[in-house]
Amino acid sequence: MILVIVDHDRGVLDPTSVQAISGALALDSEVDVLVVGAAGRDVVGELASFGANTVHLAVHDSVTDFTPVASARAALELISRVSPAAVLVTGTPRGNEVLAHIAAILDLPMAAECLEIALGNDGVHQVVRNRWGGNIMETARVHSTLLLAAFAPHAVRAESAVGTGTIAEFTPALSDADLAVRILDRVGEGATGVGLTEARVIVSGGRGVGGPEGFAILEELASLLDAAIGCSRVVTSNGWRPHSEQVGQTGTKVAPDLYIACGISGATQHIAGCRTSKTIIAINTDKDAPIMGYAHYAVIGDLHTILPELVAATRAAKE
């Protein structure tokens, strides 16, 4: 049996975290799911639609929002009770964090950023995992009876399946120390515009945009396509756009249906953040730029000439 920990935010399921259920079902027909927090009850039906049968719901009066160590303690209690062969998550910030707490407490190895997982019977498992944000893949052995591994986000697709979604509720034993680190507040919620991680389309700009004012035409295209604005690291380093818009290994990793890279050369750091996009279009003056090795489609030319015409044609096409 494999235990998958999924995440929700105040009762709203994190769709990326669900990918680990599909990944686990490909390895073992028996998959249990752990959800932490009373609000997790709201996501059980949705989990069943991805094939979850038993959903362990850890409920504790003091856990009213994300509390990473408490989630790990709940998982540890469950691990000792149901003895899974593996505990898997999707490697979202929270998924990685909770799994690392489990690994640290048990002093077991943990493999993050996995693309493929093969369970071994003899305490040696094999994984293929991303390095350098996916530019390099590592084959590694994990020496541990219990495998702790995180799928790289979007390494597996969340597949619909029929599960019973039977709730098994329990109250984990928690100490004050387990509750010390938790979300106390949120700031900037309700900001307008489409968020990078949720956007179906991203219009992204790099050095070739030339300056902060150059982004106006990208914003026009973005509003026509209901897209979010992204940018490369040089853009945030120059202060042209806020860091929250940086796509890349050290910025936000995105996987939209369409990624339009305008004036972005395609440094490995940037590619690491957008390589899993379904379609990448590059608009660049340099036909030999590294981005051409990753883009599906390219337009060779100056974005300052192309984008105004593209905006006009897109607007006309929508009318």
Binding site: L108, P109, M110, A111, Q126, R131, G134, N135, I136, M137, E138, T139, A140, R141, V142, H143, S144, R275
Partner: peptide
């Protein structure tokens, strides 16, 4: 190593 690198490959 308990997470033991076996080999690398380019994506």
């Amino acid at each position: 190593p308990r997470l033991e690198k076996v080999k690398l490959a380019l994506a």
